[in-house]
Design a binder for these strands. Structure first.
Lengths: 234, 234
DNA sequence: TGTATTTTATTTGTCGACAAGAAAAATACA
DNA sequence: TGTATTTTTCTTGTCGACAAATAAAATACA
């Protein structure tokens, strides 16, 4: 923690502090900068951001509502653990949401949606090219979230975003060990997905989306079953 | 607002206030005691519950996270409106979650789950018998939530609960106009669902769950809007 | 030395007060 | 009378301080 953080922020817009803290903590959690189990101290955060505990607390309540942190009453707050024992429930949900959102995108997308989707597609390809792991993970999530948006079902997109968040943490582990072969393949599959959506071919979108999701899940499952590791954190 | 509320609560366990306010407001919103658009005043609530604004605010942040209330920055907070224009997205999501959760329950339930499910089944039947509309709606949601729990996928149950909450508000409107014919039919369908789950007949559970959901949706849709349904095979 | 009890330390939960922002009301001005 | 501007009012957002709850440390006691 540096000292300059608090010094250079005497003025800031009313109401913006919560969002700033929320966004930053969220990213740090999802990128494993704050690994599962990390303690979250309100006073420390208040000093770091140069504000009182009240807005910090509000940000923490939000994060808690999304399951990213866990609070022991009267005692402590920490980054939620990754539940390796129930990874299959996450994968089940992910595969289904991949299917449904891709399917709905094929049905209901508008031309302008494809522009956005293609943008993230290129961002992802660029991240793969430059072997930027964190960017790969983030842009992949953004790509699929954009597809979900094009499907225009806020309930599905809401769940899907949460699942993609959780998956971000796991992919972060995955790519820490294997930084090489698969990403290029995913780029090609993404292109196929876009084509199916643009052609409004619902069944193809469903099929490819499912295959794509199962592809990823299988790779990750293979990794974890091989290592059999259940605890990585401190 | 009565005066006795504030007088009789000088002592209360630390940390319990938030949950109390959250639970009560949530119920009042879902039962339409607080109709969509109702203003939420922090000071008023603080006086009503005899506590400061801080715990009230935390409860409101939670409700906001679930989309039950909406906040205009620096200005006001109100109960979220029901989006009648996009009801079909809610119905799509509901039908799919009915299917998936019933299906998973048939696969993964344990004997003790059935006890709980049967309990809510009887509660619902009793509510129908006594024509208690609010109880019917609440126990119906509890029944299906219990089935989802038996399926043991926290991501699906999380979304499903939210959908059931939203549906509670709509059913409340529905039953205000039609208080008679359908509930008995739903009781019988619930019994069929239980039978399929107990027999671990996954396909039957899926099929009946889907039919049950579409049954309800169709009745409600007849009152509001219609079109473009989502229909996929698992 | 090992265990039970008291004390301290640390962190959270709650409070009352104040300031900022935005709408509503009041005023000025044509 | 109608419109622009100022003033007031009302609600939220933020703050610093204090109390409660719990864990850790220190002490008492066998």
């Amino acid at each position: 923690m540096t000292d300059t953080d608090t010094a250079t922020a005497p003025e800031r817009k009313r109401g913006s502090g919560v969002k700033m803290v929320y966004d930053l903590l969220r990213d740090e959690i999802l990128d494993l900068v704050l690994p599962p189990g990390s303690p979250i101290d309100e006073v420390q955060l208040a000093e770091r951001f140069g504000m009182s505990r009240t807005p910090i607390r509000e940000a923490l309540v939000r994060l808690s509502g999304e399951g990213l942190i866990e609070t022991l009453p009267n005692r402590s707050t920490m980054v939620s653990n990754i539940d390796f024992l129930n990874l299959n429930t996450l994968f089940d949900a992910l595969v289904l949401m991949y299917r449904v959102t891709t399917r709905l995108a094929a049905q209901y997308h508008r031309p302008e949606d494809l522009v956005i989707i293609r943008g993230f597609h290129e961002d992802y390809a660029a991240a793969v090219q430059s072997r930027d792991t964190l960017a790969m993970i983030a842009t992949n999530a953004a790509f699929h979230a954009a597809i979900a948006d094009a499907g225009r079902n806020p309930y599905f997109t809401g769940l899907f975003r949460r699942l993609l968040d959780e998956a971000r943490r796991i992919l972060r582990l995955y790519y820490q060990s294997y930084e090489e072969q698969f990403p290029q393949r995913f780029v090609e599959e993404h292109a196929e997905i876009i084509a199916a959506i643009e052609a409004r071919d619902v069944e193809a979108a469903d099929r490819i989306g499912k295959a794509h999701a199962e592809q990823i899940v299988l790779q990750v499952q293979k990794l974890f079953s091989r290592d059999g590791r259940l605890d990585i954190s401190l």
